[in-house]
Nucleic acid binder design. Structure first.
Lengths: 263, 263
DNA sequence: CGCCGCATTGACGTTCGTCAAGTCTAGTGG
DNA sequence: CCACTAGACTTGACGAACGTCAATGCGGCG
C-alpha cells in the first residue's frame, strides 16, 4: 500500500503522513526503546530522569506490525497489553449482539489503545488497522509493576485513561446534541488538529477511513456523510476529492460546530 | 426530601432506595471508614487483608452531603478528589461553549465520579445531585500513594476507569445506532438492573431525573421520551405514572433493544 | 388552595435515512 | 500499456422518524 501523493494542485509539499522510519527490520515483532523514540512526548510522561526513562524502556516488550485491514485485537480476546501506535492509523469499534457495529474512535501515532480490556481482562472492542501500522506492545502487568515504582508513570497512566473518558464525553455531546453538519465539521477539525499536533499540515488531510466508517463514528449514514461533504465543498469551506480533504475556511467550520442547532 | 412511597398498587413492599444510615451526624462533613461500609464490595477491591483494608480507610478523608439540585463539582473547578457515592443519585453533564448541554451519565450508590478531572487537574463536567446525597471524599494523591503500596488498589483504580470507558462505548453505540424506542428500552433496563444489583426491585423504579434529562442523555427531545414511554405503556410493556415506572415485560423490552433498526 | 414546574398529547415541519442509479478510482490481469 | 472490475463515492427522489411549537393536564409544595 504505497502512500498516494497529494493531488497536483497541492501547495508546497507538506508531509501528510508520519515518516517515522527506524532501521527497517522485516520481522513481525522486534525489540525497541522509548528513550530514543520521537513520539515519546506523546505517549510517555515528561520530565523523567534518565534512570526512570531507562526503566520505562523495559515496559515496551516488542513491536508488532499490523497490516492494513487486519485486527490488532478483537472483542473477546484475552487482554494482556496496551498498545502505543508508532505509525499507521486504527479504528476501534464495538459490536452489539444483533450485529450492529459502532466505530468508537480513530487513533493515530502516539495514541494508546486497549484500555477497554483492563476491566474484565478481555478486550471489548476490535482494533482494526486502516493502513499498515506498527505498535509498541506494553504488557499491562509490567506497566503496573513499574508504575508502583515510578510515580510519574503511574500518574501518566491515570491521565491517559482520564483523557479517554473526557474524549468520549465529547463524542457523546456530538452524538447526542449535534446535527449532521455540526458533527462532520467537528470531525474534520478534530482530525486536522491532531495531525497538526504531529507536525503535519493542519489544512490538508487524507482520510484513512471510508464514508461508512465516518458515518458509523458520527452516527449518520454514509450517504449523509457524502452529501454533507459536498455541501461544505459547495459553500467553499473545503475541497474534497475522494479521501483528500483540504480545509479552506476553518473559522467557518468552527462556527458551524459551535452554532446552537436551535436556529 | 422524603422518599415517596410506591403507589398503593405496589406489591409486597420492596425498598426503592438505599437505606444506608449510619450514626446520623449533622455536620456537613464527617469521618468515616470503608472497612465497615456495606457498599464496600461495590467501590473497593475484594480480597484485601485486614491490614490493607485498614490502610484503605485512610484514603477516605471525609464524607460530604450534597443537597438535591446542588453540584458536587463543576466544570473548571480544580480537581482534587474522586467521590464514591454512598447515598443519593447524581447526573454528570458536559457543557459546550454555545450553551449546549449533554448529560453523560447517571450515577448511584457505590459508583465513583470525578474521573474526568484527572487528566488536566480540572473537572471537565458538572456533577449534580438529583436527590439529597452523601459521598465519600477520596483525595486523589492519597489514592495514588496507597495504590503504589497496595497493588490490589492500583488494579482496582485501573479497572474503575476502564469500566467507565467501556460504559461510554455502550452509550456511543446507543447514541450512534439506535432509534428512540431502542434507546429508551435500553435505558430503563439498565437502570433496573443497576438498582437490582443494589438489592432493590428490578421491576419497580422511581426515576430521579426529568424527561428532559433522560432525553439529553439519550440524544432525544423530552417530548419523544414522553411519547415513547406512553407507547411502551400502551403496548403493555411498562406502567408509567410520572416518575414511577413498573416493568411488566422485560423480555420484550430486551427484544426491542436488540432488534436491528433495519426492519 | 393555588401556583409552577413537569409531563402529556396533537399537528406540523425538517432532517436524515432508504432505495436506487450512476460515476470514479485504484488495483488487477492480460 | 490498457481494459476490466470491484469497491467506494456521489446524487436524486421519496418517506419515516423525530424535532418543534403549542395547548392542556397533573401533582407537589408552599
Amino acid at each position: 500500500m504505497k502512500e498516494p501523493p497529494l493531488p497536483a494542485q497541492s501547495a508546497p509539499t507538506i508531509r501528510l503522513l508520519p515518516t517515522v522510519h527506524l532501521h527497517a527490520v522485516n520481522a513481525q515483532t522486534m525489540k525497541v526503546a522509548c528513550s530514543n523514540c520521537n513520539l515519546r512526548e506523546l505517549c510517555m510522561p515528561v520530565g523523567l530522569s534518565p534512570q526512570e526513562l531507562a526503566r520505562i524502556d523495559e515496559v515496551v516488550a516488542t513491536r508488532r506490525k499490523v497490516k492494513r485491514g487486519t485486527t490488532l485485537f478483537r472483542s473477546g480476546e484475552a487482554f494482556e497489553s496496551l498498545f502505543a501506535i508508532r505509525t499507521g492509523f486504527f479504528k476501534t469499534c464495538v459490536n452489539a449482539e444483533d450485529g450492529r457495529d459502532q466505530v468508537t474512535g480513530f487513533q493515530m501515532a502516539g495514541e494508546i489503545i486497549g484500555l477497554d480490556g483492563i476491566v474484565n481482562d478481555r478486550h471489548t472492542c476490535d482494533a482494526v488497522a486502516l493502513e499498515d501500522a506498527e505498535v509498541c506492545v506494553m504488557p499491562f502487568d509490567r506497566i503496573g509493576e513499574l508504575a508502583r515504582e515510578v510515580s510519574a508513570l503511574q500518574h501518566h497512566v491515570h491521565r491517559i485513561m482520564s483523557r479517554e473518558i473526557v474524549r468520549e464525553h465529547g463524542v457523546m455531546l456530538l452524538l447526542g446534541s449535534m446535527r449532521a453538519e455540526e458533527r462532520l465539521a467537528a470531525f474534520v477539525l478534530n482530525l486536522a488538529q491532531r495531525l497538526n499536533a504531529r507536525g503535519f499540515s493542519g489544512s490538508e488531510l487524507v482520510l484513512r477511513m471510508t464514508r461508512e466508517e465516518i458515518g458509523s463514528y458520527l452516527g449518520m449514514k454514509l450517504e449523509t456523510v457524502s452529501r454533507t461533504f459536498s455541501k461544505f465543498a459547495e459553500d467553499g469551506l473545503i475541497e474534497v476529492r475522494q479521501r483528500h480533504v483540504r480545509i479552506l475556511n476553518a473559522a467557518e467550520l468552527q462556527r458551524i460546530v459551535n452554532q446552537q442547532s436551535a436556529q
